[in-house]
């Protein structure tokens, strides 16, 4: 199956976040825990929906990624734009912090 990670928005400021391997949410997609089977995906989502996260995370869901050796990358346009920022404003979003993208 397609590899998947869990993404959501942070409650307080709405920032795009990803569930990492230690159950810690972070803004780096590269740090996301990757599920490679349906069981793993279900378990990952269950962890994301745990009551402990409900006061700081909004709407967690599974998204498809292309599972590359270095780091996963989004499989869809939508998630690519979510991960980086608006394609029409390279000064905004995560892309603004990546060298060479501006």
């Amino acid at each position: 199956m397609t590899a998947q990670i869990v993404t959501a928005n942070r409650l307080g400021d709405g920032a795009v976040i990803y569930l990492g391997r230690d159950d810690i949410w972070g803004e780096r997609l590269g740090g996301a825990a990757v599920a490679r089977s349906q069981d793993e995906a279900a378990a990952l989502l269950a962890r994301a929906e745990a009551p402990a996260h409900r006061t700081n995370v909004v709407g967690p869901y599974l998204m498809d990624v292309i599972d590359e050796a270095t780091a996963p990358r989004p499989a869809s346009n939508r998630e690519n734009i979510r991960a980086l920022g608006p394609t029409v404003r390279s000064d905004l979003g995560r892309q603004a912090e990546i060298p060479g993208r501006r």
């Binding site: 928005n9 400021d13 709405g14 939508r78 979510r82 920022g85």
Partner: peptide
């Protein structure tokens, strides 16, 4: 944490606050 997101969402929407791709 007193309100869940399901309970809060209609209240924030009544005040024009959406959640979009990157942020609110």
């Amino acid at each position: 944490g007193e309100l869940t997101e399901d309970e809060f969402k209609p209240l924030r929407l009544m005040n024009g606050l959406y959640l979009q791709l990157h942020a609110y």
